[in-house]
Design a protein around this nucleic acid. Structure first.
Lengths: 165, 165
DNA sequence: TAGGCATGCTTCGAATTCGAAGCAATGTGA
DNA sequence: TCACATTGCTTCGAATTCGAAGCATGCCTA
């Protein structure tokens, strides 16, 4: 049990670095495409996508923040931009007077639909191009549990504001 | 050839989302640890790690920017901070008068060494915890080619400044 | 070998990002 | 029920980030 070794083995290092590099490169490419296609930032796109995916077309602020792994204040800012652009609406939540429910508008859905094909194209061309269907399945099978494991740690925005003494 | 479908298949979507989520969560955890352990940002850590890895302990600015996938101006800023903190040094490159060579200092190596164990611990605990050794091998085997494929596209910082008409 | 384009880095200004502090509503224990 | 901690979101200020423009050096070719 002499664990927590001073370093990762070479295979782990390779996987870790590849992971970091791949997502950095992918993210930049996607950001470029989104900016060109719809003048959207990556976060804004993620938010619209999540809202568009929801059966109700809406989510609470906190759920959005946790979903896209973003600070609460940053989310307020971005949702403000989206609202100003007419892509989402903000209403006080029905059950909890403090909560704010964000809802995608028709304009939001239209823009999302306009941007999606190009987005898919970039992801396909960069991420999936060198992977066989079996590879993709394997990748999903590997990363799914990792995500669940990470999510099981309390999300950053839910960290208690202070500790009791 | 009726390609570029309007959407990704569910497995691809799952893999893509898992990838994005995993790296977002991992990144935040790592950032937290680095801030606590050595008051370093993620980029700064990446820079020190790359410099520490180099046989010469140094790299040119552009190579660093491309390596960590970062804007050139942002790199100037960050290297400036590192230099002010005494963790790296800047010297004009020997062969190319325009170039700037960044070199890690002893203090930089010391800090890097101080921060690394905690970093490894976070990565082990979050990323590798749910993965068997075989899984890690598989992950590396999958992502390596993807990285190479993405890298084969011209790095963002090398984009031509303008196109000829 | 001179003109002109390309490359390497920095500066500048605008936009984004985050954490800490603040405000309102909600839950909780005595 | 009433204080008081908690939760949900926003505001605020400081730090970071990026692209465009600027400057200096190197390369290339006519």
């Amino acid at each position: 049990m002499s664990d927590s070794p001073p370093s990762l083995d070479p295979v782990q290092l390779g996987a870790y670095f590849a992971l970091v590099e791949v997502t950095s490169l992918l993210r930049h490419a996607v950001e470029q495409q989104l900016k060109d296609a719809g003048d959207l930032s990556y976060v804004q796109f993620q938010l619209l996508a999540r809202l568009g995916d929801s059966p109700t077309g809406s989510h609470r602020m906190t759920d959005l923040a946790d979903g896209v792994v973003y600070s609460r204040s940053g989310l307020t800012y971005q949702v403000g931009l989206l609202e100003k652009a007419g892509l989402v609406g903000r209403t006080p939540s029905a059950d909890d007077e403090r909560g704010v429910t964000v809802t995608i508008t028709d304009a939001g859905r239209t823009l999302l639909a306009a941007v999606l094909p190009g987005h898919v194209e970039v992801v396909s061309g960069l991420l999936f191009e060198p992977l066989s269907p079996d590879d993709v399945t394997a990748l999903a099978r590997l990363l799914g549990p990792v995500r669940d494991h990470m999510r099981s740690a309390p999300p950053r925005s839910a960290a208690p504001r202070r500790r009791k003494s």
